[in-house]
């Protein structure tokens, strides 16, 4: 692996696989008698049944149920009645709503850019032709496999405890704020850092994108006397823009839904002093501490709505910002 001659191994392999599969399909159909379209459909759906049932029972069903609940004052023990849009209007009078939205937005605005910049930077380093590059790719991807686990959240808690590694390290530079865990001004940074550290998924996508940029563009630019920076700004970024857009979209949607680590580090109360009171954590507390399932469902649907709107805005903005090679004649 270390002496791999082509850095373009993953996409190339994919392509090879796809062609092979296509060939096989061709051969298969050539040998067998063509099956009727109906029969093919039936077979297809038969194989899909477990997943269809699964998503109906475990995703679509509960979602519809929670949509209904969001229009009731359903209490986990006492039940509830239809109350129309009261939950949705009550939300805006709720002092905790603004706090939760603020914490979540701050997180999204910090975590997404930092994570993407970090993953792009690392992706650019890892697409170089170097000895042992395969090892580094694996190593840098590794954190994202384990990062959302309970174990890592607990490790994180220890890292940022008072007198812990972060506190000690920063004290050398005159920091007096103690551990991030107990300091509401900076506690959210713990979660931002956790997110940045797990740049594996966008990094892989960036790498795939970077390897697709035609080398002749760089060569031509070099001939014209463009420096590294100019090549990056005028070739890499535009050519990469569809991939950047995809990553921004995915990471933003994910960031809005952060729950696990926040719940473990800050608890249902979003401690310290509500500085990690993420929107999702608040939904959890409303549903399972306060037992107000109807109201919690309304919060959840508001999040769905908000993420939908943000996504829509991004798609609109992308029209002018994203360059799709090969669509020049549109």
């Amino acid at each position: 692996m270390s002496a791999s001659p082509s850095t373009a191994a993953p996409p190339a392999a994919d392509e090879a696989g796809a062609t092979a599969a296509k060939d096989q399909r061709k051969r298969g159909t050539a040998k067998r008698r063509p099956v009727s379209r109906r029969g093919e459909l039936l077979t297809g759906y038969t194989f899909m049944i477990p997943w269809i049932i699964g998503s109906l029972v475990f995703t679509v069903g509960p979602m519809l149920w929670s949509l209904w609940l969001s229009f009731t004052d359903y209490h986990l023990i006492l039940g509830g009645d239809f109350i129309g849009f009261d939950n949705y209007t009550a939300m805006f009078a709720d002092p905790m709503f603004g706090r939760a939205v603020k914490v979540t937005l701050v997180y999204v605005l910090l975590a997404v850019p930092f994570k993407l910049v970090a993953s792009l930077a690392v992706a650019m380093l890892l697409t170089q032709k170097r000895r042992g590059i395969g090892f580094y790719r694996a190593a840098f991807y590794m954190p994202s496999l384990i990062a959302m686990s309970v174990g890592i959240a607990i490790v994180w808690k220890a890292l940022f405890a008072k007198g812990g590694p972060q506190d000690q390290f920063m004290s050398w530079f005159g920091w007096e704020g103690g551990g991030f865990i107990g300091n509401p001004d900076v506690s959210i940074l713990m979660l931002v850092l956790l997110s940045v550290w797990t740049f594996g998924a966008p990094m892989v996508i960036f790498m795939a994108g970077l390897l697709q940029v035609p080398g002749e563009l760089y060569e031509a630019a070099e001939v014209d006397g463009a420096g590294r920076w100019h090549r990056f700004v005028h070739i890499t970024i535009p050519m990469l823009s569809p991939v950047i857009f995809f990553n921004v979209l995915m990471e933003t949607v994910h960031a809005f839904q952060l729950f696990g680590p926040a719940f473990i580090i800050g608890g249902t109360a979003g401690g310290p002093a509500w500085s990690t009171l993420f929107y999702t954590v608040r939904i959890y507390a409303l549903a399972f501490v306060d037992l107000r399932m109807g109201y919690a469902s309304a919060w959840a649907w508001m999040l769905v709505l908000a993420v939908g709107v943000v996504t829509l805005i991004m798609f609109r903005a992308a029209k002018n910002l994203v360059y799709y090679a090969g669509e020049d004649n549109r």
Binding site: I77, P184, T268, A269, P272, V289
Partner: peptide, 22 residues
Amino acid sequence: PAATGAVEVKFGEIYQQVQYGE
């Protein structure tokens, strides 16, 4: 009352704001 569990949590949570001077 049934809401005591939640009230208890809230009581500590909000007092924390006082401790932090928020």
